[in-house]
């Protein structure tokens, strides 16, 4: 049977080194299979997060050969076999152990976004065309790969001033919901820091759900903020037109 070598990060927030493991490769195998093989056969304490093993829950984000990916969706046969396959934890968040990182910060940001608020007592009539924009963002499986690659969080660790792409699309989703009544532009401009994004589109590139984060969410949000703060009359008019 074919074999591959995985070079896996083992360690915690302070210390760590890589360790090589030889793993048999079956047809259709994904990197997560290889990691679970290591657990069952070599090191039972290898820390890995996973749940669905079908690219639906967003638990298994790692950096495979330097590229942020879902390990359950990365086929072994898509990776060159002549060199060890490197597997590292995602970089933008502190390591707990091995491939598992502390992503709690994301959950705090989510809490800071005012929830969906429909008009009172209104029947929820909505048309497919009108819900589709928000539905695109609701495909998000919260894998945090976009948060991981965004240079504002990854390289500059500006977690105090920027919510990151995941939560910008969350705000966009609520904003574009046909029946939402809350104005979140103040939050967008200040705490969420939409102005920091310089549209590099790295987030869109890694999104396993193919959400067009930059084009469909961030750019419209930026326009909204600009319109509102530089041309309030225009903003009110556009709001009226929507209703």
């Amino acid at each position: 049977m074919a074999e591959a070598v995985l070079r896996v990060f083992r360690g915690d927030s302070e210390n760590g080194e890589t360790k090589d493991y030889k793993v048999p490769v079956e047809e259709g195998m994904v990197v997560l299979d290889a990691l679970l093989y290591i657990q069952a056969n070599y090191d039972g304490d290898l820390a890995v997060r996973w749940n669905c093993k079908a690219a639906k829950c967003g638990s298994c984000s790692t950096e495979i050969n330097g590229i942020p990916k879902l390990s359950c969706k990365t086929r072994m046969d898509s990776l060159p076999r002549d060199e060890p396959i490197t597997v590292y934890p995602i970089k933008a968040f502190p390591v707990i152990k091995d491939l598992v990182t502390d992503v709690k910060w994301n959950y705090q940001k989510q809490k800071e976004i005012p929830p969906f608020t429909p008009p009172e007592d209104e029947e929820m009539i909505m048309y497919q065309d009108d819900v589709e924009r928000s539905q695109e963002f609701r495909k998000c499986i919260e894998c945090f790969l976009c948060q991981n690659v965004c240079h504002i969080l990854r390289d500059n660790n500006a977690k105090e001033s920027f919510f990151g792409p995941r939560y910008l699309i969350k705000i966009a989703e609520l904003d574009m919901h046909p029946l939402d009544t809350v104005d979140r532009s103040e939050l967008l401009r200040n705490e969420a820091g939409v102005g920091f994004c310089n549209i590099t589109k790295c987030c869109t590139e890694v999104c396993p759900e193919n959400i067009r984060i930059t084009d469909n969410a961030i750019i419209p949000l930026k326009e909204r903020v600009v319109d509102k703060y530089f041309d309030p009359i225009n903003w009110i008019l556009s709001k009226l037109k929507e209703d």
């Binding site: 915690d12 657990q39 090191d43 039972g44 304490d45 290898l46 820390a47 890995v48 707990i96 152990k97 091995d98 598992v100």
Partner: peptide, 8 residues
């Protein structure tokens, strides 16, 4: 084997 920290 290993410690109690995140040990599957």
């Amino acid at each position: 084997e290993g410690s109690r920290i995140f040990n599957p």
